[in-house]
Design a binder for these strands. Structure first.
Lengths: 192, 192
DNA sequence: GGTTCCATGTAACGTGTTACATGATTTT
DNA sequence: AAAATCATGTAACACGTTACATGGAACC
């Protein structure tokens, strides 16, 4: 039930589904993705629930846009969600499930290649977040310590993303070392 | 499409749905949860696909059990999945979405309480993983460097879990400091 | 004239959760 | 006698992804 609350959170200013999607893409994208095909019907439901109201508006370019704004009830719902405390949903990490069973490949070289590829993808994500931070720094001289209120918590989430992906990269490196050590050990035992 | 592959991976030995669930609970539980109501139909589908075969078997206690075993086709499917390389699915972190919008509470004290509660939950999970590691160490003198093949990769995933939750705890602490600093700054500006 | 961006939606499908339903055996 | 554990399933619902459908305006 959280896309609903994310949309409520994004609607501090009136916006269209399309706007929200763009905004999502450059702020929450690293821990929450959403498709337009999910956003549009959800906004509709929320209007039916009385959490939002909408009106049509002309666009500078392109067709008319449906602009949503949060109602008082919507704001209450948002605050309730936050006041409930942290929602600890189970995270599913597909790649970790793969690592868990990697021995089934029966081939240390392939396993090494797997971890190497994982490392590259993780460090790519890390770099993307670092670039996002640089862009923010360039755009706002107050970054990171004198940000306005609406930037404070988003900046914290960006910092977490960096820490997490850096941890993944570190772990991949350790795994690669351990796999290497294990492989050379097993070659020795075979007398290679 | 990954529960399927996880079930394939778990079926190195013949096992019932119930067995698999228990085994899941004390190994993958920190990054992959699954309900019996999801496992049973999935096993059925997989048998229909020819990835598994089943037979009924008496139980020491309780009713008859349906024991599944992996077919050659199932083993091929498992290896293919691993050979495809890391599956980087988007992770959704509900609690991070909440942090992102925490400013909407308009109350630093409540935000602090939120982060405090998050810190406690994260450190609880970290402790659970450390306990799991201790239990493993006690049970198997070869831990962690001379584990048999089927323990090597599981141990790596356990190590990642610990790193990740430790990172979360660290980040919570940093957030708490920054929130505190921000609060006292804003009280000063108000001349409290 | 073709591509990209703006803009909104629907439909089908796949995956995951919660609740319901049943009943034997073992432990307290 | 009650509670926990063993054991297997179904049904309804919620959430998310992919594909499909449409069409205007701006840019190259």
């Amino acid at each position: 039930m959280s896309l609903k609350h994310i949309l409520l959170g994004m609607l501090n200013e009136p916006a269209s589904g399309y706007d929200i999607k763009k905004c999502l893409n450059n702020s929450l994208q690293h821990f929450w993705a959403a498709n337009l095909s999910q956003i549009y019907p959800q906004l509709g439901n929320m209007e039916a629930e009385g959490l939002l109201r909408s009106r049509m508006s002309d666009s500078d370019r392109g067709p008319q846009r449906r602009l949503y704004r949060r109602t008082a009830k919507g704001t209450r719902e948002l605050k309730n969600w936050l006041a409930e405390g942290p929602h600890m949903s189970e995270e599913r990490r597909h790649f970790l499930a793969q690592v868990f069973f990697l021995d089934a490949l029966g081939d240390g070289e392939q396993a090494r290649a797997f971890m190497q590829s994982l490392r590259e993808q993780m460090s790519g994500k890390l770099e993307a977040l670092q670039a996002a931070e640089e862009a923010w720094r360039d755009r706002d001289s107050r970054y990171p310590d004198n940000l306005p209120d609406d930037g404070f918590y988003p900046q914290l989430t960006l910092a977490l993303g960096q820490k997490i992906f850096a941890t993944y990269v570190e772990w991949c490196d350790e795994c690669l070392e351990r796999i290497q050590a294990r492989e050379s050990g097993s070659r020795e035992r075979q007398g290679a």
